[in-house]
Amino acid sequence: MSQISLFLVGASGEGDRQRFDITVLIRGEERAALIREKLGLKTIVADLSDRALIVAAAENADVVINAANADHPEGAAAIVDGLKNRQAKTGKTASYIHCSGTGALTDKAEGEFADEKVFDDENVAAIKAIPVDYVHRACDTLISNAGEAGDIRSYIVMPPMIYGRGTSVQIPALIRGALKTGQSCHYKKGLPLWNAVHVQDLTNLFLLLLDDALSATPQAPSGGEGFYFCATDNFQWKQLAQELGTRLHAHGVLPTAETRSFTDEEANAALGSWGGFAYGSNSRSKAINAYKLGWKPAHGDGNDGLFESIVTEYKFVVEEGKDQAPKVHFDEMYALSGKK
């Protein structure tokens, strides 16, 4: 049996070496050399803006997994075009598993209020009603439309905040902010509600979708219906700050467990200019399609969940550097003014 060609964009995990012929898109020869040496995978040194390379790589792939950038429509279009070329040449429909995010569900609460609205992935109409110029929606729409047209088999995974050692963006930023201010802080009133998922549970969902994509009789919703939420943890931003303060104070690294609001200057320094979006919005989702597919998350509320990861994330922050600047979530993210 011939190997299945798998093109990974923005990923460097291991796969079944006997089953898959894996190629990884990676920026920088130094990182690519490590992946070749440590994991034995093929690499393409480029980024999503290198259209010709992306089209050619996708054209040679049975499956593409894109976890690099949820807001790079040009790169997503290049992947779709390559997979369409493959279909035209071989008559076979290839699959595209795309990592988006529940940033697409956010409002403009700016830390001031909680919204009880919860999206679920069976209510596709509510997801599609989000304007195409809002966060992540340009890529999502392009990919799902191609899937609906039958050009590809598309699956769009929409994780909330991802946690697990070295994978979170928001938790380390909050920890660094706490270390600088001497106590855990939240954005303004900290009242909005969000969700989270452990990176391993998210990975397991991708593997389930990969198995479905390669099945002779795929069962999972795809195309216009192929959206997948995967929230396992529920929290309020103020609650998260309180848990962070309590745990890091007990760990001996904060002088107090008490919390407060960031000042505007502190918020900008700790969270970046996009702090209101990333730390002051409501974004709530309910996973239905994933569970129907057989997804069984091992982490979540009350079971080695988000709050239990805080001390581990702190240790990673110390290793990585306490004074790093806030990481930007969206290099090519569209204007946030298009919704609500």
Rank of each mutant, 00 (worst) to 15 (best):
S5G: 03
S5L: 12
L6Q: 15
F7D: 14
G10D: 09
G10L: 10
A11D: 11
A11K: 04
S12H: 08
E14Q: 14
G15I: 01
D16S: 12
R17V: 10
R17G: 07
R17T: 03
Q18N: 13
D21I: 11
I22C: 13
I22R: 07
T23I: 07
L25T: 12
L25Y: 09
R27S: 13
R27H: 15
E29T: 13
E29K: 01
E30P: 09
R31L: 14
R31Q: 08
A32Q: 10
A33G: 09
L34F: 07
I35W: 07
I35F: 11
R36M: 03
R36A: 03
R36F: 02
E37N: 14
K38Q: 13
K38V: 15
G40L: 12
G40N: 11
L41C: 04
T43P: 12
T43Q: 09
I44A: 13
V45R: 03
A46L: 09
A46W: 10
L48E: 06
S49G: 13
S49I: 08
L53P: 03
L53M: 10
L53W: 01
A57P: 03
A58H: 11
E59I: 03
N60P: 06
N60R: 12
A61N: 09
A61R: 00
D62W: 06
D62Q: 04
I65N: 00
N66V: 05
A67F: 05
D71N: 12
D71S: 07
D71G: 01
D71F: 02
A77E: 07
A77V: 00
A78D: 02
A78E: 05
I79Y: 01
V80C: 15
D81Q: 04
D81T: 04
L83W: 02
K84I: 14
K84S: 14
N85Y: 06
A88V: 00
K89R: 05
K89Q: 14
T90P: 09
T90I: 07
T90E: 15
G91H: 07
T93V: 15
T93A: 14
T93H: 02
T93K: 05
A94N: 00
S95T: 06
Y96Q: 07
Y96H: 04
Y96S: 02
I97H: 09
H98V: 05
C99Q: 12
S100V: 02
G101A: 04
G101Q: 09
G101I: 11
G101N: 06
G101W: 06
T102M: 07
L105K: 01
